[in-house]
Structures are given as structure tokens and as C-alpha cells.
Simulated assay, not measured.
Amino acid sequence: MTDAPDFSGLSAVFINATLKKSPEPSNTDGLVTMSADIMRRHGVAVTEIRAIDHPIASGVYPDMTEHGWEVDAWPEILDQVMAAEILVLAGPIWLGDNSSIMKQVIERLYSASGMLNDAGQYAFYGKVGGCVITGNEDGIKHCAMNILYSMQHVGYTIPPQADAGWIGEAGPGPSYLDPDSGGPENDFTNRNTSFMTYNLMHLAKAFRDAGGIPAFGNQRTVWDSGVHEFGANPEYR
């Protein structure tokens, strides 16, 4: 067994898209805690946000108070997301799909998809993303596909095996944190959550050490300037 890399200095944000307001217990928090605790043990600064506790407006602009909403907590949350190298979206399965809160969070992430970093790339370049899912009905892979596709579409990089989840026995039954559910002791879930967590930290560290994703052929500022010779040209060598 090799020594663990130095992950200190990295930061991560977990956004829980449960439908339950605090302080009501959230089963999704159980998996969030497992992953977040691994990160904290390796010196990663972790912020946990329960989205439903905040007055997040609906919409696809960075600040919806500029579009008719009186209050919007998203800009403050986005500042925390932008400051972190790792983002994990966590949520429950309802009717085989992601929760309405998860959909809202993804829409608001999309609202920042036009923002740029200092290298002229899209702002989420060089950041890594993953997800955890809980429930007592089928749909972990379906929910993960939607979340991880959405994250890479706005610029996040997805490492190998970047999703984990627990659903227990399909149909009505105990949830993850319920007594005798078997969730916290489930080896498959624990393994996947651990692998996801370490892969997120490994890739985030690699990007940090490399200074992000190389800025060639992917700079919005260069493309907008009219310089296209590096792409969209079958004759380019």
C-alpha cells in the first residue's frame, strides 16, 4: 500500500438536493458525510450546503434578482462553488429521477456556463465533479447519468467511477439511515463512495499541480477574437 498523496489545500463543496429542510434528517446526508469525512481526513476543506434551506430562485441567469426575483441565494452559493476544486451533487431518487431541487441546482450551474476563468476558458475548467444518490427505488445510474452529463457540459471534468449510491431493496422499505436498513454497512456502497472520493481528490490534485487544463484550442476569448486556425479546419496539421 502506497502512501496517500498530499491533498491538503484542496477544497470541496457538497450540495445536498434533498426535499427535506433542516433540521429534518436527510438520508442523502449519510452518504455525503461518508465522502466528506474522507476528504477532511486528508486535509481537504469541505463545505456542505443543503440547497432547500436557501431561497434559491428558479432560472438560468447567475443572479435572478436582475430578472424579477426579490431574493436569490444562488450568487453566494456560486461564489463557494467557484472557489472549490471539487463539487459533489447529492440527492434522492423520486419517481425514478432526480429531485426537483437537483434540477434547480443544475439549472443554476448552467447559468454560469458562460463565465470565463483567467485563461479565457469556461470557468468550470480544471474543476472536478461527482455525485451521490440515495432512495428506495431504482434509478441510481439514471440519476447519475443526468447529473454527470450536466456537470461535464458546463465544464467540469468527471473522473472514473464518479458516482455512488444506495437504494436498498426496491420498493417501499427502509431508507439509508433507518435502523436495520443495512445502508451504512453495505460494502458495495462504501467501496464506490470511497473510490469516487479518492478519484475526485486525485484528479483535483493533478489539475492543481498542472495549473489546470492546458489552455490551447479551448479558449473562448481566442475563438471570439476570430482566431480559428487551431480548430474547425480539416486542413489543420
Rank of each mutant, 00 (worst) to 15 (best):
M1H: 09
D3K: 12
D6T: 10
G9D: 04
G9M: 05
A12G: 08
F14I: 03
K20W: 02
K20E: 07
E24S: 14
E24D: 14
G30K: 00
A36L: 05
D37P: 10
H42K: 12
H42A: 09
V44Y: 07
V46P: 01
E48D: 11
D53A: 05
P62Q: 08
T65Q: 01
E66N: 06
E66C: 02
H67Y: 13
E70W: 05
M82T: 11
L89M: 12
G91L: 04
W94C: 09
W94F: 15
W94Q: 13
L95A: 14
D97Y: 14
N98V: 15
S99M: 09
K103R: 15
Q104C: 13
V105S: 03
E107N: 15
R108L: 08
Y110I: 11
M115P: 06
A119Q: 15
Y122W: 14
F124C: 10
Y125P: 11
G130P: 08
C131E: 06
C131H: 05
I133A: 06
T134Y: 00
T134I: 00
N136Y: 07
G139C: 03
K141Q: 11
H142I: 13
N146S: 10
V154R: 02
Y156K: 04
I158Y: 01
P160N: 09
Q161P: 00
A164W: 00
G168V: 01
G168T: 00
E169Q: 11
G171Q: 02
G171I: 01
G173T: 06
S175Y: 14
S181K: 09
G182Q: 07
P184N: 03
F188G: 13
F188K: 15
N190Y: 05
N190M: 08
N192V: 05
N199M: 03
N199A: 10
M201A: 09
R208H: 10
A210G: 12
P214Y: 07
A215M: 00
F216C: 12
G217D: 07
W223G: 07
D224N: 13
G226I: 08
E229W: 14
A232C: 10
A232I: 13
P234I: 10
P234T: 04
E235R: 15
R237A: 12
